[in-house]
Simulated assay, not measured.
Amino acid sequence: MPQIDLSLGTVSYEDTGSGPAVVLLHGLVQNATVWRDVAADLAADHRVIVPTLPYGSHAIPLRPDVDLTPRTTARLIGEFADALGLPDDTVFVENDAGRLQQLAAERPERVGRMVIAGCEAFDNYPPKAGGTMMAAAAKIPGGIRFLALALTPRPLRRIPGTGFAVMTAKGVPHDLTDGWLRPLRTDSAVRADLVRYLRATDRGEMLEAAEGLAGFPNPVLVVWGRQDRMMPLEHGRRLAELLGAELVELDDCGTLIPVDQPRALAEAVRKFAAA
């Protein structure tokens, strides 16, 4: 994978296909592989760029002296797009996390077009279930390592209502979660990055982002899973109303839309990009 040096550290990314640019952004304790099916679909007629962000499943730790927070990570996404020279009409798609909303509120000119697909929003931050559990673990010395080790046995990742199981309607393939958990189990610097990020979380910052988005001037698409147990469907509807955006609701779909409904999400993004 190519790499690029940015203000917080080195970011790896995938860059496939050709045509109009689409940037796909993942959530915590995931990496670019969560988008593999969507990226393969869109690469038929788009340039698809998928960075692995410093959310605990990154292979290259950030510099330990940098200010790592959700807000600086949002800015990092903009810096990443600037460094690659991506055009103003690039389509940014985010799932699970909410940093794209923060970037769009702060730098609307950088986010040409935006797809919010089952994300943190409003007062659901950190999101219930897995998000609040990780936030609590980050406050305890060794807590994040304990969680990563506890999820090492594959059957434990499928316990209903916990961990990755709460994020999907169909279940996350084990080869994906194996890769997502490996850096947290084996690299103390990666764990330190995630702890810094989680400890810097401010419960009010997504409400602040929503206020900033009220005047967002560019096209937006909102996609949500009807069976989402982490990100309330009502928040998708509120975002669509706030932004004057089209709303696509998908059945048999939880938070991880790229896992549950990759083809439907790719088609929604393709239609939005073409429009």
Results as ranks from 00 to 15, higher is better:
residue 126 P to F: 07
residue 229 R to A: 13
residue 30 Q to D: 14
residue 162 T to L: 15
residue 188 S to N: 09
residue 178 D to N: 13
residue 137 A to F: 05
residue 54 P to D: 04
residue 155 P to S: 05
residue 216 F to R: 02
residue 200 A to W: 11
residue 28 L to F: 13
residue 103 L to T: 10
residue 124 N to Q: 06
residue 3 Q to S: 15
residue 211 E to M: 10
residue 199 R to I: 11
residue 109 E to K: 14
residue 78 G to C: 03
residue 224 W to E: 03
residue 25 L to E: 05
residue 177 T to F: 00
residue 53 L to T: 03
residue 208 E to C: 06
residue 105 A to N: 02
residue 30 Q to A: 15
residue 229 R to N: 12
residue 257 I to K: 04
residue 128 K to S: 13
residue 164 F to E: 12
residue 29 V to N: 09
residue 213 L to Q: 06
residue 80 F to W: 08
residue 250 L to W: 04
residue 136 A to L: 07
residue 40 A to I: 03
residue 235 H to Y: 07
residue 131 G to Q: 10
residue 275 A to Q: 14
residue 225 G to V: 07
residue 17 G to W: 04
residue 121 A to Q: 05
residue 269 V to G: 10
residue 81 A to V: 03
residue 264 A to V: 04
residue 221 L to E: 08
residue 211 E to V: 14
residue 35 W to D: 06
residue 36 R to F: 08
residue 158 R to V: 13
residue 247 L to N: 02
residue 59 A to K: 03
residue 269 V to H: 07
residue 51 P to N: 05
residue 103 L to G: 10
residue 68 L to I: 02
residue 78 G to F: 02
residue 101 Q to V: 10
residue 190 V to D: 09
residue 263 R to M: 10
residue 113 R to M: 07
residue 65 D to P: 08
residue 136 A to E: 12
residue 25 L to V: 06
residue 216 F to A: 03
residue 170 K to E: 12
residue 169 A to G: 11
residue 192 A to E: 13
residue 234 E to C: 08
residue 110 R to G: 04
residue 216 F to N: 05
residue 199 R to L: 12
residue 260 D to M: 05
residue 268 A to Y: 02
residue 56 G to S: 04
residue 64 P to R: 04
residue 230 M to Q: 10
residue 112 G to C: 02
residue 228 D to G: 08
residue 93 V to E: 01
residue 185 R to F: 08
residue 188 S to D: 15
residue 80 F to P: 09
